[in-house]
Simulated scan of single mutants.
Amino acid sequence: MPLSILTTLVHNLIKVPAAVLRSRVAKDAEVLALRHENAVLRRQIARVRYEPADRIWLAALSRLIPRDRRRQVFAVTPATLLRRHRQLITRKWTFPPRGRLGRPSTAPTVKQLILRRRHPDAHVRTRHLDSDEARALPDGQVDALVVRAPLPVTDDGLDVSVLYDEPRALLVPAFHRPAGKESLTPDDFTDEPLVACAGTTAPWTGFWRLEPRADGSPAPLGPLLVDTFEDKLEAVADGRAIALVPADDPRGALRNDLVAVPVAGIEPCQVVVATRSADANPLVAHFRESAKNLLVREA
């Protein structure tokens, strides 16, 4: 390992005189090309893995780059390392929560109603699905979904009933300028890059990225596409983008490096219950009815 580190450092140091002797135009063009290639790779790769020699060389180069530019140059910043350290501590030292965050779970209430009052012999199992797993309903892996609309999948062949409206909030890093505000409007973050999720429908993407804008232009795109909500949280915590999220979603509130600020002047999302239109299972019909009566947004 030490030999490989020394070899890498010597190899990179040999390149320095050649870089100094090149013309300024050639170096600027190469920097722009490498910067664009770096942005493309960040969109395609969720996490960059560095060897020890890579970390040493990049740490040395970082001393020559202004602090406010490091986030655009490096995929990993000191804030990233601190965040990962906090996650390690969180996984190691866990304590029972002092209170409940977000809307309390109502799934046991619904199951109790179905099992005891109408179908005492039925077996109901609940699952938590991320947005990229919503195809479990049309694919027949689950019988009903309580989900936010617009749906991340096409609603062809689905029955969708609205349960209640839920405001949206802007999720930003704790060090970001809007983090200290009581509320925001879309004009406050019109130039900020917004996270985009891969594999979702156009209405879903447009809704959560406020597209199109008033002038018909798309929202600024973040440096990467994410696959899950957890990936979205990581991108925001790293300071690479911001994201619109449901105001009642507790996953962002559980982290001390993220802040959710209410956004005024935009349409709320809707919590709905979705089932397959052709499903004649009486349990599914009773679940829809129970959801309409029991799943309400708490003030």
Rank of each mutant, 00 (worst) to 15 (best):
H119A: 08
P120L: 00
P120V: 03
D121K: 13
A122V: 10
A122S: 14
A122T: 09
R125G: 08
R125E: 13
R125K: 14
R127K: 04
H128L: 09
S131Y: 09
S131I: 13
S131P: 05
E133Q: 15
R135P: 01
A136S: 15
G140Y: 10
G140W: 10
V142P: 09
D143H: 15
D143K: 14
A144W: 11
A144I: 10
L145I: 12
L145A: 13
P150V: 07
P150W: 07
L151E: 08
P152W: 01
V153G: 07
D156E: 14
D156R: 12
D156N: 11
G157D: 10
D159V: 12
V160K: 09
L163P: 11
L163D: 10
Y164G: 03
E166V: 11
R168W: 02
A169G: 12
L170A: 01
L171F: 03
V172M: 03
A174F: 10
F175T: 14
F175W: 13
H176A: 15
H176F: 06
R177Y: 06
P178Q: 02
G180I: 07
E182P: 01
E182D: 14
S183H: 15
S183W: 13
L184T: 09
L184R: 07
P186K: 05
P186A: 04
D188V: 00
F189Y: 11
F189V: 03
D191S: 13
D191I: 00
D191L: 07
E192F: 01
P193K: 05
P193D: 08
L194G: 00
A196Q: 09
A196Y: 04
C197L: 15
C197V: 11
A198W: 05
T201Y: 07
A202P: 08
P203Q: 08
T205D: 07
T205S: 14
F207Y: 08
F207H: 05
F207I: 01
W208Q: 01
R209S: 09
R209F: 02
L210C: 03
L210F: 02
E211Y: 07
E211K: 06
P212F: 02
P212L: 04
D215V: 02
S217F: 06
S217D: 13
A219T: 15
P220W: 03
L221K: 12
G222Y: 06
L225T: 06
L225R: 15
T228F: 06
E230V: 03
D231H: 14
L233I: 04
E234N: 11
E234V: 11
A235P: 00
V236M: 07
D238C: 02
G239C: 03
G239D: 10
R240Q: 14
